[in-house]
Amino acid sequence: MTHEIVMAGFGGQGVMLMGQLMTYAGMLENKHVSWIPSYGPEMRGGTANCSVIISDEPVGAPIVSEPTTVVAMNLPSLDKFEAALQAGGNLIINSSLIERSSKRSDVNVLLVPSNDIANELGNAKVANMVVLGTIIAATKAVSQESVLKAFAKMFAKKPELLAINEQAIKRGAALVNGK
């Protein structure tokens, strides 16, 4: 099984971190993984994206051109990557900021009001973690436990952050798994 995921949004939405956490979690599960960001003038324009691959096989091309999952944190990202998504793939849309849903009927659309949920949790910054929860629940590419472990490792110096981020991930996952 190979998960090829594109995560996109504007700078500051934590898209890169989301991707890195998933990649880290995949590594902890001894899977083959890679993460590669877009970089350069594109970022100045405000949108940033990264490609994440989590696979049982060694990873070939790290830049994903036909994703199995697309995560759109803002409208320009949805416009840009919606068409590239493979049929049957997951389209995860940040419905707090994106008013439209998908034009496609051959994909699994998940609307995640991530900013609203984050605000409910009392920390606007964890919107990306809500989405991350949805991604892992929808793809099962890595387990929630591994993501939390990855988080604890990446933020070893700030253990106090874990609890709120864990809550956010769980809320995001619940959108898929039911309460």
Binding site: T23, M27, S34, W35, I36, P37, Y39, P62
Partner: peptide
């Protein structure tokens, strides 16, 4: 190349 420099792998 730029891509190898930017990408993360174990």
């Amino acid at each position: 190349d730029g891509a190898l420099g930017q990408m993360m792998e174990p």
